[in-house]
């Protein structure tokens, strides 16, 4: 019964904060609402019995993607970046959601909303948890897509580095072509120096 209540709580906050993502004027407020969305979605995932994905969502999205958004937003120095403070509301909301998720993890026990469903069991007396199940299937049946994903991430990394790369003009860099084609006659000159006088270049 209380799982139902938790579902409606998470779902309503999720919808409200997703409306906040598109409704607020300032991009910073949009980003805070986006964080709220991801935390509530993680709560829903835990309700569904997908703990691994829930924590992956928190780590990857809240920890990396939203931080990257904030980083770019702060770097760009936009003129319409007036941040309308929501007071202590974000702090309280995040604290409430996190405590909910933690209590959910403690008290959920074996039951989740999808309790009726029996996930694929490999052997009769081998009952893996969620992460083990995902690992079992991912590294056997989905090994090639997994490698493909790593390649896509590599391409994204290189692409974003190249896109934001700017060549500085006064950078000290080796020009290998120039170095190889340098001849002795171009750079070294032998002069007979009389004793007591200097050399004019």
């Amino acid at each position: 019964m209380y799982l139902d209540i938790l579902f409606y709580l998470f779902a309503s906050i999720l919808v409200l904060s997703s409306v906040g993502v598109i409704a607020f004027k300032s991009p910073m407020n949009n980003l805070l609402c986006l964080i709220m969305c991801f935390l509530n979605a993680a709560g829903l995932f835990i309700l569904l019995g997908a703990e691994f994905l829930a924590f992956l969502l928190i780590m990857v999205y809240v920890g990396a993607v939203v931080v990257m958004f904030i980083f770019v937003l702060m770097t760009l120095n936009l003129e319409n970046l007036e941040y309308k403070s929501m007071g202590k509301l974000p702090v309280f909301a995040t604290a409430i959601i996190l405590s909910e998720i933690i209590t959910l993890l403690i008290f959920k026990g074996d039951q989740s909303i999808a309790q009726a469903s029996k996930l694929t069991e490999i052997a009769s007396n081998y009952t893996p948890n969620n992460t083990q199940q995902i690992g079992d299937v991912m590294f056997s049946m989905y090994a090639y897509p997994f490698l493909l994903i790593s390649f896509i991430l590599l391409v994204a990394m290189i692409g974003s580095i190249i896109l934001t790369f700017t060549k500085q003009k006064n950078r000290k860099q080796q020009d290998i072509h120039k170095q190889i084609h340098r001849k002795r006659e171009d750079s070294v000159e032998l002069k007979k120096v009389k004793s007591g006088t200097g050399v004019n270049f």
């Binding site: 990857v60 993607v65 990257m68 958004f69 994204a156 692409g159 974003s160 896109l163």
Partner: peptide, 10 residues
Amino acid sequence: LSIAAAEVAI
């Protein structure tokens, strides 16, 4: 998830 992360980076 990983595709979305790559897409956001790009």
